[in-house]
């Protein structure tokens, strides 16, 4: 990263900022990030969620709860949780699921695994494809850009949600015939695959637009003039300057894909029972807005907290990485 920023750093030193010149950009970025106390808290929240997701079985067995155990005794004759606030009790800290009496906390913890898995993997796939395609397309221009552009157009032209639903069964069947284990594994693979097929386009569009502007900029022209090869320019000059928009996209994408998982679940493409996912919980809980409002809010709040954390961290990272961030604002 140090050399990556060198040309931009040169530009900066021509202006007012002299005091921080002695530190490397990476150190600078870390220092900037550490100054943001909110961001540190947010990072802690994300790590906490991740740890909980990874060690879900351990945590649940320590707490003595299970996401699958039915508890009919916790339900009244209507199948609704006994007691107030959705059946919150010593045995069930966040209450029980209406209809089955399963422990909501345990399902939330286990559900985090599926949701985070889908969110992270889908983001990884779409962002990786999107960056590569976008940079190549924007930098190469000409025929390459035209061909990629047509593929992009074709992908964008399809109503993605509709296709995701329509293609579920045939593609999952195909995947299973390729030896991917049936059940939830093939469903997760399908969801990530189909989100990848449709999702890269948005990243690619943004990256391409940025690349188009960047390649006209002085430092890229300078690199070209000094005989730098395409790959060098792409990786050393363009990529570093794409971090900001990409990070914004990623921080929005992860929670966005977690939400997509729940929408697919709402439309009947979710995990198979008895597996828990936040999407399934959100979809189920909205039906109890009147009968069991506690249940309605618990998965929603869990999701909102995660998303807010990602946003705060995303912003902080973006501000920290952006070497121009500290400069005086014109407004």
């Amino acid at each position: 990263m140090g050399t990556a920023m060198s040309l931009d750093e040169d530009l900066i030193t021509t202006s007012q900022q002299v005091s921080v010149e002695s530190k490397s950009p990476r150190e600078l970025a870390i220092a900037r990030f550490q100054r943001d106390r909110l961001a540190k808290w947010a990072l802690f929240v994300i790590v906490f969620y991740l740890v909980v997701a990874i060690f879900a079985p351990l945590i649940c067995s320590l707490l003595g709860i299970s996401p699958y155990a039915l508890d009919g005794k916790a339900l009244n004759d209507f199948g609704l949780p006994k007691g107030s606030f959705g059946g919150i009790s010593g045995a069930h800290w966040l209450g029980v699921e209406p209809g089955t009496g399963r422990d909501i906390l345990a399902r939330l913890i286990y559900g985090a695994r599926i949701s985070m898995l889908v969110g992270f993997l889908a983001t990884l796939v779409t962002t990786a494809i999107g960056i590569i395609v976008g940079v190549v397309s924007g930098y190469k221009r000409g025929m390459v850009d035209a061909v990629i552009g047509r593929i992009t157009d074709l992908t964008l032209a399809f109503p993605s949600l509709l296709l995701m639903i329509a293609l579920t069964r045939p593609i999952i069947q195909r995947l299973e015939s390729f030896g991917i284990p049936e059940g939830n594994t093939s469903r997760i693979v399908y969801i990530i695959l189909i989100l990848g097929v449709f999702g890269w386009v948005y990243v690619a569009r943004i990256v391409r637009g940025q690349t188009l502007s960047l390649r006209e900029r002085e430092f890229v022209e300078a690199a070209r003039a000094s005989g730098a090869g395409t790959w060098r320019i792409v990786f050393k000059e363009l990529m570093p300057n794409l971090w900001a928009p990409v990070i914004v996209t990623v921080t929005l994408a992860i929670p966005g894909y977690v939400a997509t998982e729940s929408t697919l679940s709402f439309l009947g493409l979710g995990m198979l029972p008895p597996t828990a996912s936040w999407g399934a919980m959100l979809g189920d809980s909205v039906r109890y807005y009147r009968a069991d409002p506690t249940y309605l809010f618990i998965p929603g709040i869990a999701l909102i907290v995660l998303v807010l954390a990602f946003n705060v961290v995303g912003d902080a990272v973006r501000d920290a990485l952006d070497p121009k961030g500290d400069r005086q604002n014109i407004a």
């Binding site: 997509t260 909205v286 807005y289 999701l303 998303v307 807010l308």
Partner: peptide, 17 residues
């Protein structure tokens, strides 16, 4: 920022309902 985060992350059916 908070508005953005909440709006972009919650699924349509949840917000709609």
């Amino acid at each position: 920022n908070a508005f953005t985060a909440v709006g972009v992350s919650l699924p349509t059916f949840y917000v709609g309902l």
